[in-house]
């Protein structure tokens, strides 16, 4: 069983095929819903980067939500780097 992460800050990179504008809007709404403090990085049609800070469980929820959606996006992989926040 994977131990529960305790680090609050995470740098995320979603890789795949996406519309950066739509994906950014989706990620911003999701971060607001999960009460995460977010800093947005580069956004292209192949990758989207951001850094979020919040409860580890909610950071996980953000990661999974962005991995699954929005509908147009096909995310193949997510790189995540956790640090103390």
């Amino acid at each position: 069983m994977t131990p529960r992460p305790t680090l609050r800050r995470a740098r995320l990179r979603f890789r795949g095929a996406l519309d950066p504008v739509v994906f950014a809007d989706f990620a911003a709404r999701r971060a607001a819903l999960l009460l995460l403090e977010a800093t947005w990085g580069s956004a292209t049609t192949e990758a989207f980067e951001c850094e979020v800070v919040g409860a580890p469980e909610l950071v996980d929820a953000f990661q999974m939500a962005c991995w699954l959606g929005p509908p147009h996006a096909m995310i193949d992989a997510v790189d995540i780097e956790r640090t103390a926040g």
Binding site: L33, L35, L58
Partner: peptide, 8 residues
């Protein structure tokens, strides 16, 4: 153990 935020 998580207290869900009011935004949810």
């Amino acid at each position: 153990n998580l207290d869900p935020p009011a935004t949810l």
